[in-house]
Design a protein around this nucleic acid. Structure first.
Lengths: 288, 288
DNA sequence: AACAGTGTTCGACATATTCGAACAAGGATC
DNA sequence: GATCCTTGTTCGAATATGTCGAACACTGTT
């Protein structure tokens, strides 16, 4: 649906995007990239610079994404609810398993890492906040998908905005759906070298008040240290605790006569994510 | 100097700023705040939403700063050079002193925290990445000021963009200049409850290739655990090591501080605090 | 059911943005 | 050090584009 849109603002955002992707650029290079007149881009950059959205390096005469963007973005994370409140539990978890712990949120068809506690190990999964991961090939992504109705899953997978290399084959798609069912049953997702070679992870959702998934909590490490049983045992209670911090109340008794089981497997601390809508027939909605 | 500027882009940025400051807002509230027509803001928000710069919450019908901004901002930090490379040493330092370690950069007249390693202690200075601190009342700020010519210091202090509460009295200003001289001599800055009650810190600059300050490294904690001698002893070698990572080469006695052509040497004040000479040979202990 | 407030659509006007060309500046080459 | 080339900046004009107000649709309140 092509909506009417402000082209000038679009240009500004495109400029920032290009600068973020290609690194600091000179005026002419950027104008070239944007396919806009040099004078236009000049004015645009001046405006952005005035507001701190781009920084200018007089030495190299290049413009780069400004730190003001970082500042604004940080408030997005705080205000979104994945901020200060959750880092404490994440640190605790990282300490217990001695591995990297990260918090990823579903955004624009992929998982965006918003918080990260690094493992003290030298050899570790090197993923920084601000990184994106594919929904279908990351533990966090699959954990988030598992919280949604099958129909929603299809919609999300089809709008994958990721580079082609990360696209999914049909064979993978079918395997994924089976995987999702398994994830729902056992309460956590697992990923073995699907996204980055040598890196494996487990993940489970953090739920918010309404029972919707706020984010996915994950433990990742080099596959050599991967220990599914121990990590899942540490991960699930931690996520549970974080869910409670986010207002999620472990189930009420008089709920949902629709057959959806908001049940809690295992230690009673762990939340098995399941929305009411995902209950309808399992052969439904493979299409679209 | 009133430059010609793109008002539409300015509106977009103002909108983001307001949303960051006041939290998620409804359309009307935002239009009110920006003093623009509702239809204008409607179109503006649609454009921003299309690009992920604002997120829309259908439940509350509010718009907030989008996570795309966070993503873009993260690249600003990486590309700026305060990214992945420096977190290792910071973690090592945090482990050694058991306190919170942060990296702040001079930006728009104040110090912006770009990296942060939290102390494991429960009682700790709670400052998150994206926070700003005043130049004159934070250890990091003073450390950065100390690397600059006196003339530059005056210029920066006068353009302080901070809330009035954080403004500086003349008495403070004079004290500050004396402080700066002391900082240059001993190689690190100290701050005792000047910014946040109960929090004290030490800080020292991280230098880059040209000898200019890239950022300030600091250790902060509740004043009860403040230990100036131990921390400075840990801080300085760490910063030294990080400076080398950033291309700074410990320098021989040279470089005509007065006289010749450099733009910052014009005032005759030396721009670079020599840290290495203060505390000789001990730093390479930092690992990994 | 009626109301009030909010969000969305539409058309017209006028402003603000784009562009090309001409000017200035900085670096490179010889 | 002088010339050339590339890059960045300024300027004016034409048109495209954003702004606004009013009217419409919608939600959820009383």
């Amino acid at each position: 649906m092509p909506e009417r849109t402000l082209s000038t603002v679009g240009n500004a955002i495109r400029a920032l995007t290009v600068l973020a992707d290609l690194g600091p650029l000179r005026l002419t290079a950027l104008a070239d990239e944007l396919k806009l007149g040099k004078s236009t881009v000049h004015l645009l950059l001046q405006t952005l610079r005035e507001h701190g959205m781009v920084d200018y390096d007089p030495a190299t005469r290049t413009y780069g994404v400004g730190l003001r963007v970082f500042e604004l973005g940080a408030t997005a994370v705080e205000r979104g609810g994945f901020g200060a409140r959750l880092v404490g539990p994440m640190e605790e978890l990282a300490r217990r398993c001695n591995e990297s712990v990260s918090l990823g949120v579903l955004n624009a068809g992929s998982v965006l890492i918003v918080q990260r506690i690094e493992s003290p190990e030298i050899l570790r999964a090197d993923i920084r906040p601000g990184t994106r991961m594919p929904l279908h090939a990351s533990a966090s992504g699959k954990a988030l998908l598992a919280t949604m109705a099958d129909l929603e899953i299809d919609r999300l997978l089809s709008e994958s905005p990721l580079p082609d290399s990360a696209r999914m084959t049909h064979r993978q798609r079918n395997g994924l759906l089976a995987d999702i069912r398994l994830i729902r049953k056992r309460g956590y997702a697992k990923q073995k070298e699907e996204f980055v070679d040598g890196i494996s992870a487990v993940a489970t959702p953090v739920l918010t008040a309404g029972g919707r998934a706020l984010a996915a909590l994950s433990i990742a490490s080099p596959s050599s240290r991967f220990d599914e049983v121990r990590w899942s045992a540490l991960l699930l209670p931690a996520a549970s605790y974080m869910s409670e911090l986010c207002g999620y109340r472990a189930q009420r008794e008089e709920q949902a006569p629709n057959g959806a089981g908001h049940m809690f497997a295992g230690t009673g601390a762990n939340a098995v994510p399941r929305r009411k809508e995902d209950r309808p027939s399992r052969e439904q909605a493979m299409s679209s």
